[in-house]
Design a protein around this nucleic acid. Structure first.
Lengths: 208, 208
DNA sequence: AGGCTAATGACAGCCTCTGACAATTGACAA
DNA sequence: TTGTCAATTGTCAGAGGCTGTCATTAGCCT
């Protein structure tokens, strides 16, 4: 952001994003129109769509940053860790360093509030899940390269990621609807669920 | 469907659905407008929205039928089967008896073609995934009751379903993009992936 | 046959998103 | 500094999904 022009663009984008998130978390996603956002920032509606492909993109912009951050964490995991363990450590580390990634754009608190909005708004949840598919494909690629296997012939990378992704999405959902809506609670849930995957799979749950 | 009125409604709905699916599979989902469908059936656009909550609902109507069918299959699995095994058998059985559920509305071949449309259309894939969340919640409830555990305190039902769902979605995706687009191929993929979940999880994949 | 009710059509309107063109504003060299 | 070029924005116009409303039609039932 050298030139004045670039700085202005940056400021417009951040104003749009911050305003959008603020409105989404207070009036709800569907209760907020793009016109509302544009008007609050004092730009035309058309300008909003020049910065964001759609309402969804603005709503999920923070998440996109954290996903990128998580992918980076996976890439940097030591090679001696087994795939699932590497993923596990990467998520936990991701939560720990969440603030470093977000703070420049918005307070963590706003991110957390958006989480609930996403989870409780059908249209947003749908968009979120669709993105997860792409994220999982990216993670699978990282794992495959890491372990030196070929994704096209070996299903294990995608399989491991599918399982991991399933558990993580469940974790998010339970967390966002639970009472303890803190990062610590999220960490605890993650650890707990990942621990119980094994037992949940092959055994019978009955205690007769 | 006793009265003439009810028969007419039934016919209108089926005409709309069949026409919609036909257009979706030939011109694509986004290349088809609701007006196109309504016009082809010779009803007003408003009438379309009286039968379907939206374009999505029409596109996913067949799938909804098969999901209901699958849930029924899960409910009827013998109690001696472990949870994951019951789910596995239910899916396989679901595929076997797919035709019985679909044929009254549309040929299986149309259902299969729609599968590719869903998987390759972002908006539809998103809607599909969102529905999967609800489906998984329903399955978890069935499993919990079956095994006599309380979902609110025991995470295993949701956990098992999350894992299973993750694997099944991967299966669908790989199947829909693969070359062998037959039900047999689907069955084979399902069995194969479920077999490899265990190995993919805890071990290292390297063969040094 | 005639009243009742359900189904449909016809508008009008809101919201998301896009293309096109003109106006503005910063960048940069002469 | 000024003039030119390019990037940013605003303004329109319009498509497409979806909803509310109200009048009209058509099946139902006595």
């Amino acid at each position: 952001m050298e030139t004045l022009r670039e700085r202005k663009k940056q400021r417009t984008r951040e104003a749009l994003l911050r305003t959008a998130l603020e409105l989404f978390t207070t009036q709800g996603y569907e209760g907020t129109t793009v016109d509302d956002i544009a008007e609050a920032v004092d730009v035309s509606q058309r300008t909003f769509f020049r910065y964001f492909a759609g309402k969804e993109e603005a709503a999920l912009a923070l998440e996109e940053m954290t996903v990128a951050h998580f992918l980076e964490a996976v890439r940097e995991r030591p090679l001696h860790e087994a795939p699932m363990e590497a993923l596990r450590q990467a998520v936990l580390e991701g939560w720990d360093t969440l603030n470093d990634v977000i703070e420049a754009v918005a307070p963590v608190e706003l991110y957390l509030r958006m989480y609930k909005v996403v989870e409780s708004t059908p249209a947003l949840l749908a968009a979120h899940l669709r993105r997860s598919v792409e994220t999982e494909e990216a993670i699978a690629r990282i794992l495959a390269e890491r372990e030196g296997v070929d994704m096209d012939t070996d299903p294990r990378p995608r399989l491991a990621v599918a399982v991991f992704g399933g558990v993580m999405r469940l974790t998010e959902r339970q967390w966002s609807t639970g009472e303890d809506f803190s990062l610590d609670a999220m960490r605890a849930l993650t650890v707990s669920y990942l621990e119980q995957v094994g037992p949940a799979l092959s055994e019978s749950w009955r205690t007769h």
